[in-house]
Design a binder for these strands. Structure first.
Length: 353
DNA sequence: CAGGCGTGGTG
DNA sequence: TCACCAAGCCT
């Protein structure tokens, strides 16, 4: 008779816990069924990259309602898809999502590759997402390592090497505890555990099904794992934005495909930096909002000073853009910064009337 | 390979 | 208020 090693016990205990406590999420097959749809798994995984379950929920519902399968998504209009993604952030994901759907439709007969390597070759699918889809949608044994798994594993084995140097050791340890069967459930169970029990701060070790096998639980402070490097301070930038209104319409531009907010609609704005040029795009009787719109991006914070004016029917700003109905500004698919800038301008206009 | 790349929840 | 951090990927 085979003696069960500690690695096997971890998977067994975790799966038993998962069978009772698994979160019910829209992209998961209902309990007792085995019907994970690769399209929905892939879509959810891309949306969940660096994004919380709560934020993804409504987007996932809207996307699957509007584009129920990969063929429908592949046929989507680029601007429609970018607008539907607005507010979710990391907009390169939306561009890659469309490129991936089209690659699946064109190069794979409309079916997702069912191997980790095949998935990994698709746009926007990295090591994590390829492993997750292979395991969850196709039942493959794959080592799925996201930030949750990283934290759980670093604690289970009390890995004290700081990130990112600890990644190879964490990956090896995750490989050792990943079972041959139910690798998809195991991955989701690890992520559920990280999200609800083995949290970054104040982990709930008292209710953790793995505490008897957890090296960090045996220490004074389990929460110190994984050890993270200190972060650099965010620089602050300033900029100017312009709300140009003409006969109930506002002038919107499309941002370049690469870089910050790439491919998204936006309000015309200056460069953002230490002392940006504040020359307006058109001559007009400009009014300036007293309070700049403040916004925090991943690697800098921004104060955007908003200017607004009405122009005559014969005026059109230089460069590419479109007059968008002010009453439908909510449908323009503005990323959050510009949505808030628009809101600030309209509030000011309302207050003056 | 270190840094660019959004946003919102949380303690 | 503010720092931290999230089901990462790409270059």
């Amino acid at each position: 008779m085979r003696v069960e090693g500690p690695e096997t016990k971890i998977a067994r205990d975790l799966l038993a816990h998962y069978d009772v406590h698994a979160r019910r999420l829209p992209w998961r097959a209902p309990p007792g069924t085995n019907a994970a749809d690769p399209y929905r798994v892939w879509l959810s995984e891309v949306m969940l990259q660096q994004t919380t379950v709560a934020a993804v929920g409504p987007y996932f519902a809207r996307f699957t309602e509007r584009w129920p399968d990969v063929a429908a998504l592949a046929a989507a209009d680029d601007a429609d898809l970018m607008a539907a993604w607005a507010g979710l952030g990391y907009y390169a994901r939306a561009r890659n999502l469309l490129a991936c759907a089209r690659a699946v439709a064109r190069d794979h007969g409309g079916r997702f590759p069912d191997t980790e390597a095949g998935l990994r070759a698709l746009p926007g699918v990295g090591a994590y997402t390829a492993a997750a889809v292979a395991a969850i949608a196709f039942g493959r044994r794959a080592v799925v390592v996201d930030a949750n798994v990283e934290r759980v594993v670093a604690r289970l084995f009390a890995i004290a090497t700081p990130l990112p140097a600890a990644r190879p050791a964490i990956r090896d340890a995750a490989d050792r505890i990943t079972p041959d069967a139910r690798a998809g459930d195991f991955a989701q169970a690890m992520m559920d555990l990280g999200a609800t029990v083995c949290t970054p701060r104040n982990p709930a070790c008292g209710i953790c099904p793995l505490r008897s096998d957890c090296a960090a639980f045996a220490t004074a402070d389990p929460a110190i794992f994984p050890v993270r490097p200190a972060k650099r301070a965010k620089p602050h930038r300033t900029g100017h934005g312009w709300w140009i209104e003409r006969d109930g319409h506002v002038w919107l531009v499309r941002r370049p495909d690469t870089g910050l907010l790439g491919g998204m609609r936006g309000l015309p704005s200056s460069d953002w930096g230490d002392a940006p040029d504040a020359t307006p795009p058109v001559a007009a009787d400009w009014r300036t909002l007293a309070d700049p719109v403040r916004h925090v991006f991943t690697h800098f914070s921004l104060s955007l000073t908003m200017h607004h004016a009405h122009v005559g029917d014969d005026v059109t700003p230089d460069g590419a853009g479109e007059w968008w109905p002010v009453a439908r500004i909510g449908d323009a698919g503005l990323p959050t910064l510009f949505a808030r800038a628009a809101q600030a301008v309209r509030r000011e206009q309302d207050a003056r009337n």
